[in-house]
Nucleic acid binder design. Structure first.
Length: 559
RNA sequence: UGACCCAUGGUGUAAUGGUAGCACUCCGGUUUUUGGUAUCGUCAGUCAAGGUUCGAAUCCUUGUGGGUCAACCA
């Protein structure tokens, strides 16, 4: 047996190294730490798949921790949607935690720090403090309040906590080093006054800890072995370590922050701010608009959890800036749906075909295979009659040999039905074809086993019987932006690249078996693509979203 | 005029001192009652220059290019 060794990404290598250096496997613990102030997107999915993937790989617990230290922006609604998205992706967290669970512990530790002379209250304006902070190339200068006595600091901090000061008037700062080369180490703010209602702690607090003071300590409290975040936090690592050092007890594990590059996707934007802009300005119809790269958008678009997980695994993890081709994501969903989606027939752009030698009042229910990629998928019945719809693009009066479809005097196979030959057509005053007259070969019924049924004809078309067809609204989506990196242009706003044709609504006809389709049911409309039922559908109105089209090599030949 | 991070085909990633591999995309062949799928194949890469070494994508130096860092955001 050949043991194929799968290569490790750089984070797994770090973990393996730690294990080799004596860290016991039981101590491995991870977390996914979203801030509940927005919806998750495909970039978050990369982080979710990474952290939960490590949990699965090492059989280690993974906490879902909401980083809720800013009551001004955070809401229960986001907590709910995040939990839904993570579950939908198929991951199970060990514990559901909130940074706000640790407010008291953080406060107690802060008192200790103040007593040790490692933190002080500053009541300058933010402008004054910003000036003293210096720049990346110039060192900072000390605050005039830096040398307050411990008693003074304790007293002022207590007053901050008790709500005796106005918002913005005082902050608590860690006393580190205003000349430090890393700006985050220049006496960072630990607490600010915010007299706001918190979604979990209500009005218990009017001081709230900042991210840096909270995150590492939360990791420490939960004993997270590897705290994985994106690269922009790299320079926070010094501070993360400094804070953890203040409370670290050597009988415990010291968490380790490591950073990876966030995942970018071509032809879209990923920042919460820009996504929000698209929603607020009505470019899209909400966070779950199927054109959005949000998890909820992808879900509504018809993406499966498995396809998103496959995408994350295939795209991998590294430390370099990247723009992953959206074609890879599309490949992953096609690959998944090809194996699982039932095939059905739908005509998006219909033209009427009359089969002149088929009896007026006859109808047949023909047998159709649900999915030839899945032998357990079974069969269904599809009605056939004298008048059917086919796609307009599937007929031409004349065409060259490369056109395998219907043309005058030539034959094609109707999928699961008969071979027909086009005899004539009718056009309106503008020259558009309105009706096609065909004859059929009665002996050629699919699956009948006759000689005629086995005849090789080059083209096979999908169709629906007019009198049995269901009407359906079909929403055909294209990429939201016309540029591969819409926010990668310094001189141009990303909205200049919005694709005006990202949504086309079509009035389609679908086979009757689709009448009972439920929200999120996924299908392959044969020869067209993968589609799923949209939440806008009702009992009396079918609505489908096109998830992704099938590969279309004919379109290429045509060019 | 700083510190730190990064640099492998068009894209995303492997190879951690010993044959530059995989996936996507593109292009072509075969099969096909989906111009789908499957399958076979083609094109295509180590940022540059030095150095160390029998041997460098890998180690060192210097460049070049890209990114990050100065919210009472996370």
């Amino acid at each position: 047996m050949i043991e194929e060794k799968k290569s490790l990404n750089f984070l797994e290598q770090i973990i393996e190294e730690d294990l080799a250096n004596g860290l016991s496997k039981e101590k491995l613990r991870f977390r996914f730490p979203p801030e509940p102030n927005g919806y998750l997107h495909i970039g978050h999915a990369a982080s979710i798949c990474l952290n939960f993937g490590l949990g699965l790989k090492y059989n280690a617990p993974v906490n879902l921790r909401f980083d809720d230290t800013n009551p001004a922006k955070e809401e229960q609604e986001y907590v709910d949607s995040i939990k839904h998205d993570v579950s939908w992706l198929g991951f199970k967290w060990d514990q559901e935690r909130y940074s706000s669970d640790y407010f008291q512990q953080l406060y107690d530790w802060t008192l200790e720090l103040i007593k040790e002379g490692k933190a002080y209250v500053d009541n300058q304006t933010s402008e004054e403090m910003a000036i003293q902070k210096g720049t990346p190339t110039e060192t900072g200068t000390n605050s005039p309040n830096r040398d307050r006595t411990v008693d003074e600091n304790l007293d002022l901090f207590l007053k901050m906590k008790n709500g005796e000061f106005e918002e913005g008037s005082h902050v608590l700062r860690a006393k580190i080093d205003m000349k430090h080369v890393n700006m985050h180490m220049r006496d960072p703010i630990m607490y600010r006054i915010l007299k706001k209602h918190h979604h979990r702690t209500g009005s218990d607090w009017c001081i709230y800890p900042m991210y840096d003071w909270t995150h590492g300590e939360s990791d420490y409290i939960e004993q997270i072995s590897h705290s994985i975040c994106t690269l922009e936090f790299k320079s926070h690592r010094d501070l993360y370590d400094w804070y953890v050092e203040q409370v670290y007890d050597s009988t415990n594990l010291r968490p380790k922050q490591r950073e990876f590059a966030r995942r970018n996707l071509s032809y879209t934007v990923m920042s919460k701010r820009k996504l929000l802009q698209l929603v607020e300005e009505g470019v899209v119809n909400g966070w779950d608009d199927p054109r959005m790269p949000t998890i909820s958008g992808l879900r509504r678009r018809g993406y499966t959890p498995q396809s998103i997980r496959n995408f994350s695994d295939t795209a991998g993890i590294s430390k370099r800036d990247n723009i992953t081709d959206v074609a890879l994501l599309e490949h992953c969903i096609k690959d998944d749906l090809n194996k699982t989606a039932p095939r059905v027939m739908a005509v998006l752009n219909p033209v009427k075909v009359v089969i002149t030698n088929y009896p007026e009042d006859k109808e047949e229910w023909l047998t159709a295979e649900n999915n030839q990629e899945d032998e357990n998928a079974g069969f269904r019945k599809v009605p056939f009659s004298r008048e059917i719809y086919i796609e307009k693009e599937d007929f031409r009066e004349e065409a060259n040999k490369k056109f395998f479809r219907l043309k005058l005097g030539k034959e094609v196979r109707l999928k699961n039905a008969y071979i027909i030959k086009a005899e004539s057509c009718v056009k309106d005053e503008k020259g558009a074809i309105t009706e096609i007259y065909c004859t059929y070969d009665e002996d050629s019924r699919s699956g009948s086993g006759t000689e005629a049924s086995k005849r090789k004809v080059k083209g096979t078309l999908h169709w629906v019987s007019i009198k049995h067809a269901e009407k359906a609204e079909v929403r055909v989506y294209d990429r939201l932006f016309t540029d591969e990196a819409p926010d990668g242009h310094k001189e141009k706003d990303f909205k200049e690249f919005i694709n005006p044709d990202s949504l086309t609504v079509m009035n389609a006809f679908v086979e009757p078996s689709l009448k009972s389709a439920q929200n999120l049911d996924r299908f392959q409309f044969q020869r067209l693509g993968y589609f799923c039922v949209d939440k806008d559908a009702t009992k009396n109105r079918l609505v489908f979203n096109r998830t992704v089209p099938l590969r279309d090599s004919w379109a290429k030949i045509e060019k």
